[in-house]
C-alpha cells in the first residue's frame, strides 16, 4: 500500500493553460475532485501527472482516462483489454457487464455511441491495478440518467486507491469526492474537504466559479 501521492512543481507551458508550478497531493485511498472553468488547467494537470503532455513522463503508476474517449479500430472487445494483463482483462469484462456494454463487445469500435465508448474506456481504465486513477470528466459523455449510477461504480472500483478526477458538476463533487481542488488560470484557488470548500469559498472569485462553473 502506498502512502499517497505528492506532486510538486507541476508545469505545462503550452495549450494556453499554464500550470503555475502546482503542488498537489492525493491520499492513497482518497477521491480528489478538480473543479473549475474551462481552460483553468484541470486537463493539463491530469496530463502532466499521467505523462501524456509533451515532454513529460508519468509522475506515478497511473491509470488515466483522457477527456475525449477514443476507441481504436477493431472490435470493442480488443479495445476493452488493451494494455491490460490477464487478471485485469477479466476485471474489464466484468466491468463491461456492469456498465451495460458487454453486448457491444463483438461490434466494430466505430459503430457505438460516444456514451458507450466512454463506458468501455471507463471499464478498461478502472480494471487497471494502478494505485492512482486519473479521470478527466468521466461522467460528461454519460447520459444524465445514468451518471450517478456510473459514478457509484467508479467510487467502488477505486476504493482503496487514489482517485484524481476533473468535473464541471458540483453534484458529482458532493456525491463522489472526499476533497476538492478549485483551479483556474493554472492556479489552485482553494482546496480542502468538499463541504468546507463549498460552504466557505475563500473569495468572490471562487464563489463565482461555484455559481457558474
Amino acid at each position: 500500500m502506498v502512502d499517497g501521492f505528492e506532486f510538486t512543481a507541476l508545469t505545462f507551458p503550452r495549450d494556453g493553460a499554464v500550470l503555475d508550478a502546482l503542488d498537489i497531493s492525493v491520499g492513497a485511498t482518497e477521491s480528489v475532485a478538480l473543479f473549475g472553468p474551462n481552460g483553468g488547467g484541470k486537463s493539463s494537470l491530469l496530463r502532466v501527472i499521467a505523462g501524456t503532455a509533451p515532454r513529460t513522463e508519468p509522475r506515478a503508476e497511473v491509470a488515466y482516462l483522457p477527456q475525449i474517449p477514443y476507441l481504436f479500430r477493431g472490435a470493442v472487445a480488443s479495445n476493452l483489454t488493451l494494455g491490460l494483463d490477464e487478471e485485469e482483462s477479466d476485471q474489464a469484462r466484468r466491468l463491461a457487464e456492469e456498465f451495460a456494454v458487454a453486448r457491444l463487445l463483438g461490434k466494430p469500435s466505430d459503430e457505438i455511441s460516444v456514451g458507450e465508448t466512454q463506458r468501455v474506456c471507463l471499464a478498461r481504465t478502472l480494471a487497471s491495478s494502478a494505485p492512482l486513477v486519473l479521470l478527466d470528466e468521466p461522467l460528461s459523455p454519460i447520459n444524465a440518467a445514468s451518471r450517478m449510477e456510473i459514478g457509484s461504480i467508479i467510487t467502488r472500483c477505486t476504493s482503496g486507491r487514489g482517485l484524481l478526477w476533473a468535473t464541471h458538476s458540483l453534484r458529482e463533487v458532493r456525491a463522489f469526492a472526499d476533497r476538492l481542488i478549485v483551479l483556474d488560470d493554472g492556479v489552485i484557488l482553494q482546496e480542502g474537504p468538499v463541504e468546507q470548500v463549498l460552504n466557505s469559498p475563500v473569495d468572490a472569485r471562487v464563489a463565482s466559479i461555484f455559481g457558474s462553473p
Partner: peptide, 28 residues
C-alpha cells in the same frame, strides 16, 4: 491522427510493438 487518438494511445503506455500495431491499423 486526431489528438484524442494520440492522447489515448499515450495514456495506455503500451510497448513500441503494441503502439506500432495500433498506429499502422489506425492509419492503414
Amino acid at each position: 491522427l486526431s489528438p484524442a487518438a494520440t492522447e489515448q494511445l499515450r495514456a495506455l503506455r503500451l510497448p513500441f510493438s503494441g503502439r506500432l500495431r495500433i498506429l499502422i491499423s489506425e492509419v492503414r
